[in-house]
Amino acid sequence: MPTRTFTVSGMTCQHCVASVTEELQELPEVTDVDVALDTGRVTVTSETELSQEAASSAVREAGYTISDWPAQ
């Protein structure tokens, strides 16, 4: 299963983490989400390669933005 790690900016508390996690988990291909509040790093495991567009849309829905989408 593909894994994608990126950075989300603006998260300041566990509620933020829960919101981002919830929105990303609603994507049909996503099987696991791990969010590190201290660094803003989000690791998503999915059945197929996660697109930046889908991830950005989910993160925006939670009220945050992706600040770093490293090439893989």
Rank of each mutant, 00 (worst) to 15 (best):
E53M: 01
M11W: 09
D34V: 12
T5V: 02
D68C: 02
S9W: 00
S57M: 12
G40R: 10
T31P: 02
L37Y: 12
R60G: 13
F6R: 00
Q52R: 15
V59G: 01
T21V: 00
S67L: 02
V42T: 06
T7L: 06
F6A: 02
S46D: 09
T45Y: 05
V8I: 03
P2F: 04
R60Q: 13
E49V: 11
R4Y: 07
R60F: 08
V42A: 01
E53F: 09
F6N: 00
A58M: 04
A36T: 13
I66D: 01
A54V: 11
E47N: 11
Q14P: 04
G63R: 07
T65I: 06
A18G: 08
T12R: 05
D38F: 10
T3A: 07
S57A: 15
V17A: 07
V42Q: 05
M1Y: 11
E47C: 09
V17F: 03
C16E: 10
V30F: 07
Q14E: 12
R60A: 15
S67P: 08
A71D: 15
E53A: 10
V33D: 11
A62E: 13
S67H: 02
E26Y: 01
S51E: 13
G10F: 07
V42P: 00
T21P: 07
E49P: 15
E22H: 11
T45A: 10
V8F: 06
P28T: 14
F6S: 00
D32I: 02
T45F: 06
T3I: 05
D32W: 01
S57C: 11
A62R: 08
M1E: 12
C13K: 03
E61D: 12
H15L: 01
A54P: 13
Q72Y: 12
A58R: 03
T39R: 09
D34S: 15
P28V: 11
V35A: 00
T45P: 03
P2I: 00
P2E: 00
T7D: 06
G63S: 12
C13A: 02
H15T: 10
S56F: 05
L50P: 14
S57V: 12
P28L: 04
D32Q: 15
E61G: 07
G10W: 13
E22P: 02
E53P: 05
D32R: 11
D68T: 13
V17G: 00
A36G: 14
L24K: 00
E61S: 11
E47T: 14
A18W: 03
E23C: 04
S57R: 14
V17Q: 06
I66C: 06
E61M: 13
R60T: 14
S51Q: 05
T21I: 04
T65Y: 15
S51L: 07
E26P: 00
M11Q: 06
S56L: 01
T65W: 09
R4D: 03
Q52D: 02
F6E: 08
L50I: 12
